[in-house]
């Protein structure tokens, strides 16, 4: 009580910073989540195309490429939805981040080996025609941006409008974000 009484006025400006930062998390969740969802939704209807896109990187043996080609769209869709909902936010962001690292490694390696492939990121995939530009640098920059979003979400989950907060799945682990949950304030003041 004493802490809070003296802490209140001091924490006010801090509180608003924390609040603003948790909005940043929400935006990061939406950017990463919607992108993953769209990428997966485009691919899921035709897994053979996505298998082909994975094979085009020539990094995995054919059986693995088949598994990844089928599984990747499903993982993308589920993680995308979870991030948008803010459900299991931190683990979802970890998976999203791992995917981005894998994509960055794959694209860089394709670039280094001089392969001319369409990344297959948003559907399509396979070989790029001789006169088309694979545009690897833009793909890498884009994925680096998504990776940054994932890192931020892992650092400060779950942000505003998160089901984790509504279900009470967040809080105790992270004192920063727990502060803006109203039941914490309510129980301490009486």
């Amino acid at each position: 009580m004493v802490q809070l009484a003296s802490g209140r006025p001091v924490s006010h400006p801090l509180q608003s910073v924390v609040k603003a930062l948790s909005w940043v998390t929400t935006v990061a969740r939406l950017v990463l989540g919607v992108s993953l969802f769209v990428a997966g939704a485009i691919k899921i209807g035709a897994p053979a195309v996505s298998v082909q896109a994975v094979k085009a990187y020539q990094l995995l043996p054919d059986t693995m490429a088949t598994v990844v080609g089928h599984g990747l769209p499903i993982v993308e869709i589920i993680v995308g939805i979870l991030l948008v909902l803010g459900l299991l936010t931190r683990p979802s962001a970890v998976v999203g981040g791992v995917l981005m690292v894998a994509f960055i490694v794959g694209i860089s390696s394709a670039w280094a080996r001089g392969l001319r492939i369409d990344c297959g990121c948003f559907g399509g995939g396979g070989t790029v025609g001789a006169d088309q530009d694979p545009g690897y640098i833009w793909e890498l920059l884009r994925d680096a941006g998504y990776l940054l979003c994932a890192a931020w979400i892992i650092y400060r989950p779950p942000g505003r409008f998160a089901m984790d907060s509504a279900l009470g799945l967040s809080g105790s682990r992270d004192p920063d974000t727990a502060g803006d949950e109203d039941d914490e304030d309510g129980s301490d003041t009486d």
């Binding site: 899921i44 897994p47 089928h70 599984g71 769209p73 499903i74 589920i78 299991l88 279900l167 799945l169």
Partner: peptide, 19 residues
């Protein structure tokens, strides 16, 4: 948490089967 994870696993399984 367990319920959520369970539901997600079930949905993932169904989608995989369909795909």
């Amino acid at each position: 948490m367990l319920t959520t994870v369970g539901v997600i696993v079930l949905i993932a399984g169904a989608v995989t089967w369909w795909s």
